[in-house]
Design a protein around this nucleic acid. Structure first.
Lengths: 163, 163
DNA sequence: CGCGGAACATTGCTGAGCATATAGTTGTCA
DNA sequence: TGACAACTATATGCTCAGCAATGTTCCGCG
């Protein structure tokens, strides 16, 4: 029977992953929306806020957000129009330009962050025992490092965030 | 310092989750593309293939795929044009229509499935010890049930899939 | 029987992303 | 110095998804 193929543990695994992530992002999106942000905009604000000088080159921003360069241009356009960030010319390389988070952008981020953390607590960290959580994070790290090695640099993880 | 806030373990957790999932979906998308499928199309084929009668009402398909009904209409349009599935009128309710996977659709799915399973093996199941994998799945199940309870019905998981 | 509300699918419109092409800038090498 | 290649950001065309509105069909109630 071909039907039984769909009960393959690997299908179960990816299905579970997908459904869990889908549920989480929907919850988060609703939360972000309350603060007038989309998921990508929140992501951009987070990346900028945690970067030295609160700024990032357009290219680096694209690399960190798994967004194309043109996608970054659009998002930055919108967010600049909203006053959440502004562009700044690079003094040493006139091709580059920086996206700099504004005080308004930081304020918006800080406004949205508590609720965001509460949701993570509600749907992830609060649901698992410390041991389970550690196991989950270890597993996710292994998967992330294998499937998305580019994300390892200057990102949420890796305490040795040199460069 | 506000900066340290970004090292909150909850931020680490969701970042890891996001980066891992992003990496996986990118790998999978490339794989699907080799067989002329998008991720959603693959998802639709999977859902149909595992459903009784190899068919599903448009509404139910929408519910299972976390896609809006109009989105389902469009996807089914494209896939019907490609011959992967066809519409079938519901005999008892003339408002409803079914999407039925065709032999060509099943063939395409079976063609893509081995590579898909291999990727899952390569980036998830093969990277973890059996214990780690079990822990991961348990944790994902907990998160899924909390964040996306609608997905529990008739889906990848739950052996007791009684309606 | 006939009417009003609900359910289902589709369509127009808008927003967002990617791929590609374009323009401007920098660095190198002869 | 001058030309060519590499890099950065932006503009354009295309695809796709969601929301809101529409048309059709079903159901219940007077």
């Amino acid at each position: 029977m071909t039907t039984n193929l769909f009960e393959d543990p690997r299908i179960t695994a990816i299905g579970l992953f997908s459904e869990a992530y889908s549920g989480l992002t929907n919850r988060f999106a609703a939360q972000f929306d309350e603060h007038g942000l989309s998921a990508v905009e929140h992501e951009v604000l987070m990346r900028l806020a945690r970067s030295p000088g609160r700024q990032l080159r357009m290219t680096d921003l694209a690399a960190q957000t798994s967004l194309s360069t043109s996608g970054v241009t659009r998002v930055v356009d919108r967010m600049e129009r909203s006053g959440l960030l502004c562009r700044s010319a690079c003094p040493t390389d006139r091709r580059s330009s920086f996206a700099v988070i504004t005080d308004a952008g930081l304020a918006r981020l800080n406004e949205a962050l508590p609720g965001h953390l509460a949701l993570i607590e509600e749907f992830i960290t609060g649901l698992l025992t410390p041991g389970q959580l550690d196991g989950l994070l270890d597993a996710l790290r292994v998967i992330r490092d294998a499937a998305n090695p580019g994300a390892t640099v200057g990102t949420t993880d890796s305490p040795h965030s040199g460069e």
